[in-house]
């Protein structure tokens, strides 16, 4: 069932990672990605992965959920690995078969790429698992605010994201209901040619769109009734504030970055 899709996979909690300002987490994710790309030797890779593992341990999110989240990306990961394996040239030839040449360098590179990929995904998951979607939206709005001066409608974009997050579960539920209702009239979504299947979607899409527009209309009225006039003059109940925890998080991550750079310089 559609309802089973878990969107915004936030795990509520109270670990130091949870308590970090969402802006800190967003910025540090970017820093971490830089660290990942700086790393080039076994020692620096160990540092990167160790740092991430430590963060995951502190967050108290069950490691299993990271594995589950990675499942849909396995294909992409394997593909990257294989591409690197086959198409990296080098000196030590390990396997030669037909047109396939595998070098030791290729193997090492493939392993690194896959590790980098895993670390990247886990770091992103750590952000979404420990930060509620609404906090993320707030963080984005706050970080992008300088762009508002360039004419980017930052508040409106954040509001749109917030409303979209609010209505995704509602609309999924509704899709489910409409599908069941049309199935009860004998609609068939599972068999037939591609064209027939696309045609079979009309009885779902038309009511869904009509309903979505009606909801949008009613929501707009309700928002107007609650004195919504856009971002100007608006205050926030929860103001984002950097604290001591954020300072230490920045310090630690920057230290890891420095370490990673140093290790790379020494070729480790």
């Amino acid at each position: 069932m559609l309802k089973d899709i878990t969107l915004g996979q936030y795990f509520p909690g109270n670990s130091p990672i949870h308590r970090l300002d969402p802006r800190t987490k967003l910025i540090l994710l970017v820093v971490y990605i830089v660290i990942l790309f700086v790393a080039s030797g076994p020692v620096s890779y160990c540092l990167c992965l160790g740092f991430l593992a430590a963060c995951i341990a502190v967050s108290k999110i069950p490691p299993k959920s990271f594995l589950r989240g990675m499942k849909p990306l396995i294909f992409l990961m394997c593909f990257t690995g294989i591409m690197n394996l086959f198409f990296t040239g080098g000196e030590t030839l390990l396997v030669k078969f037909w047109i396939i040449h595998i070098y030791l360098e290729g193997v090492i590179r493939a392993v690194y790429m896959i590790l980098r990929f895993i670390a990247l995904i886990c770091a992103t998951f750590l952000l979404t698992y420990t930060t509620s979607p609404i906090a993320l939206t707030d963080a984005l709005e706050s970080l992008l605010r300088p762009l508002g001066k360039l004419g980017l409608p930052v508040h409106e974009l954040a509001m749109m994201m917030c409303i979209a997050l609010r209505f995704i579960p509602t609309l999924l539920e509704e899709t489910d209901k409409i599908m069941s209702a049309q199935k009860a009239r004998g609609a068939d979504f599972e068999t037939g040619s591609l064209i027939q299947r696309v045609k079979a979607l009309i009885p779902i899409l038309v009511p869904l769109f009509i309903s979505a527009f009606r909801r949008a209309d009613e929501l707009a009225t309700a928002m107007e009734c609650r004195c919504y006039q856009g971002g100007e003059g608006r205050t926030k109940m929860k103001q984002l504030r950097y604290g001591r925890l954020d300072a230490s998080a920045f310090a630690v991550t920057l230290a890891v970055l420095a370490g990673s750079i140093a290790l790379t310089v020494f070729g480790l």
């Binding site: 409409i178 209702a181 049309q182 009860a184 009239r185 004998g186 009509i210």
Partner: peptide, 25 residues
């Protein structure tokens, strides 16, 4: 089976076509 608020499942251009959807299937 008539669902709750069944009017939200109407989709055809005419009432006739909508009522005919089930028998057609």
């Amino acid at each position: 089976l008539v669902f709750q608020y069944p009017e939200y499942q109407l989709f055809e251009e005419t009432v006739y076509a909508d009522i005919a959807f089930g028998p057609k299937n």
